[in-house]
Amino acid sequence: MACHRQRVKDLKLMANQIRRDVVEMIYRANAGHPGGSLSCVDLVTALYFAVMRLDPKRPAWPDRDRFIMSKGHGCPTWYAALAHRGFFPREELWTLRQYPSILQGHPDMKKTPGVDMTSGSLGHGLSAGLGMALGAKLNGQDFNVYVLLGDGELQEGLVWEAAMAASQLRLDNLVTIVDYNGLQLDGTLGEVIGLEPLVDKWRSFGWTVFEIDGHDMEEILSICHRARKTSTPVAIIAHTIKGKGVSYMEHQVGWHGAAPNEDQFKQAMAELDEERRGLIA
């Protein structure tokens, strides 16, 4: 247990570091999507540092687990995780959105080592992940495919075409995680087009569904472990907070696609420093 506690603590520290990098990347680029990047940090950290089978030295290793960030605007989180996992030097993070950079404003599989699928146009990720999971079955490979969906993008019809096909094709190697932070560009999901009852929707499409706190590292690890043992595709509905970790960004729709100014940046870093001190103590 002591070992497990240490592991969880290390993951929380890594998530804190990734949040710091995300805020700094967006501050330096003076553009990006901090809210939806920060809401998925704990999920992405768990996948890249505890769950997925990877080898950073071989980004194209055929038997690696795949990850798709269907909500491509959350890519600062993905880039930071890839850098800390060793896919490319951390210094690259400060080139986000600039010319020329391996780090595009939305993920480009041809430019960034470790990015398994291009994304950014919402609604495609699950369908692309379905194709990969199908490929594993056709080739007799045993890798898993993880797809991170934004909640707002579930309004896209393609997501449900893919959901329908994945259960028909019995893709038990496909796991999708919904980053359910409840906010989209124009407001709350409830104000725009609500998703409830979301668990029932996935279940009725033939998926095994888990509902978790998307910021509780132990719960994320435990559910990802269980997700490998089902005979159907798995949807994990992760309740999250948009802007998580930076007080003035949390639950604020205005931080969907805005960069912090200098004072705001300093405040965010001070808050994340304080969180870090609390984790170490």
Binding site: P62, I68, M109, D116, M117, H124, S127, A128, G129, L130, G131, M132, L134, G135, A136, L138, N139, Q141, G157, L158, E161, A162, M164, A165, Q168, L169
Partner: peptide, 25 residues
């Protein structure tokens, strides 16, 4: 039979899944 998959009347899923599949096979 194992080299043909029918996606039903869902052309968007057909094409994006084809993209994902092409990264593996």
């Amino acid at each position: 039979p194992h080299r043909h998959i029918n996606f039903g009347i869902a052309e968007q899923n057909l094409m994006t899944a084809a993209a994902g599949l092409a990264t593996v096979r």
